[in-house]
Simulated scan of single mutants.
Amino acid sequence: MIFSRKRAGDGRHARDERAAGVLDSYDAEAAAASSRGPHDISEAPDGVQRLDLGSLHIPAVPGVEVRVQADPQGVIQQVVLVHEENALQLGVFAAPKTEGIWDEVREEIRQSLFADGAAVQEVPGEYGIELRARVRTPDGLTDLRFVGVDGPRWMVRGVYQGAAASDPAAAGPLAACLEGLVVDRGQEAKPVREPLPLRLPREVADQASAAEGDTEESVPREA
């Protein structure tokens, strides 16, 4: 796994070798033996190296690059995992104790996309009902696949782009990252749907503290 941070006005993704070094090992046997996640931190399998981004801990999977938007203080606005031509954008949100919110969120996304003229359909997937959409971007038509996973007081939303958006079998290592994801919800009360805080690892944030401005988006922002 490679860690990179995209700076505003910089088309290149600067690679942080120290962060990459932390993630250059992946215990495939430990990952395969565990049940499919995302996992709550209270039930996270042992023996898997992960990149700690605060509320999200991302498993180290060979060939997967982690790209983030972060401000000079190290606060992350967006996390995107990239493998070859595929991408997976991740978000994590507060949810109630008693019920999941993906059904409601999915319907709102569907209505918003439909209102924008996108072709949208609901299809069954490994985590339940997914959304698949074809949207217009400056680069032309783009396929997106929205996946939601409800956990204890949290919800993970993933958006696939590339071949993995129309063919789940093409997700490969990105699907492995989602399955091995760990959520650290914390104990503090938060409004439902509020994004859970994400931050750069301290050593990376220290290096980025001199940077000015927010970073650019690397994939289209979903509705």
Rank of each mutant, 00 (worst) to 15 (best):
A87N: 04
S166A: 15
E104T: 10
R199W: 12
Q187W: 09
K97V: 08
A223K: 12
G54R: 05
S166T: 15
L144A: 09
H57M: 15
L131C: 13
M1F: 02
V48F: 02
A70D: 03
I101P: 02
I109W: 11
A164V: 05
E65T: 15
A20N: 09
N86H: 02
D71Q: 04
A87M: 01
Q161H: 01
P195G: 00
E222F: 02
G117C: 11
I109T: 14
V183T: 09
P201W: 01
R134T: 14
V64F: 08
G148P: 12
V48T: 15
V147M: 10
L181H: 01
E17F: 00
D10L: 05
F93G: 00
R199Q: 13
D16M: 04
V183N: 10
D167C: 04
E179N: 14
A189R: 12
R157N: 11
E29C: 00
G158F: 07
D24R: 15
E194Q: 13
E222N: 01
C177S: 12
V80G: 04
K6D: 05
D214I: 01
G54V: 06
R67E: 10
S34C: 06
H13Q: 09
D16H: 13
P124V: 06
P152W: 09
R18N: 01
R145Y: 10
R7F: 03
E122T: 14
H13E: 11
R7G: 05
E85K: 08
R157T: 10
H13A: 12
